[in-house]
């Protein structure tokens, strides 16, 4: 690394000698030491941890396992499509409830360890890595986002906001043993301060069964208004 990490308080940079190159030749690089007291945290007690808002209760959803008829595990027997569809629908409804309930960890737990949440910018995109995206998050990055919005100084979280998802048009696009590709459509309303915004589009889930449970390997979200200007931003997963 062509730079000197600055620990503590290095002196102000030496004075430029006048040439444009020399002006920019500065080696200071900020490295986050990962310490406890950084930035605003250092100003006690103003930014001492406050209680994170408690998540709202999620209405009970019958667990898919209790719905599936024994012996009709989706994909495992001929003629099981209706059972599979029903189980998948219940799974997707639960996903909506977790998002609306701000139960972020439970939502992240729906994903496989190598699961990905992806919102491309255009419907033509096919790879979650390597092209511009609105969201392109593996599980680690989802944890960063959760950590951020639940942090006591996540200022953008101070204004009241809440969402309501409606999900429908669930179609199994492709089916293989233990794996399903599912298309559905969603409509999300978001209330933030006094303003309601609407978002809509298509989900494409790649679902797999792990230890008897459906898990998300890929959740692709195509916003129908992805290329329109965003009036403010999206805080969390849609």
């Amino acid at each position: 690394m062509a730079s000197t990490p600055s620990n503590g308080n290095p002196p102000a940079p030496a004075h430029p000698d006048g040439s444009p190159g020399a002006r920019l030749a500065q080696d200071i690089v900020i490295e986050n030491a990962g310490g406890d007291a950084v930035g605003a945290q250092a100003i006690a007690p103003d930014h001492a941890a406050r209680a994170a808002p408690s998540p709202r209760p999620v209405p009970e959803v019958a667990r898919p396992a209790s719905i599936s008829t024994p012996g009709s595990t989706p994909g495992s027997t001929p003629g099981s499509t209706i059972d599979a569809l029903r189980e998948i629908e219940q799974f997707l409804y639960r996903q909506s409830e977790l998002l609306d309930g701000k139960l972020w960890q439970d939502y992240i737990d729906l994903f496989t360890d190598d699961g990905v949440y992806w919102m491309p910018v255009t419907p033509e995109q096919t790879e979650w890595e390597g092209s511009p995206s609105i969201f392109a998050e593996d599980k680690h990055m989802m944890e960063v986002r959760m950590g951020r919005v639940t942090h006591p100084t996540a200022w953008s979280q101070a204004p009241m906001w809440t969402t309501s998802h409606v999900l429908g048009n669930v179609v199994i696009e492709a089916e293989a043993p233990g794996e399903w590709r599912v298309r559905s459509r969603f409509h999300m309303m978001e209330l933030r301060r006094d303003t309601v915004r609407h978002f809509g589009g298509t989900y494409r889930h790649t679902l797999v069964r792990q230890a008897g449970q459906l898990k998300i390997k890929l959740q692709r979200v195509d916003m129908f208004n992805a290329q329109a200007p965003y009036d403010y931003v999206l805080q969390v997963w849609v």
Binding site: N32, G34, V38, M141, V144, R145, G147
Partner: peptide, 17 residues
């Protein structure tokens, strides 16, 4: 940055570590 973006910086630092 360390005021406005503290939440993101800290959360990312934790996962980075």
């Amino acid at each position: 940055p360390s005021v406005t973006h503290q939440s993101t910086g800290v959360a990312a630092g934790r996962i980075e570590k």
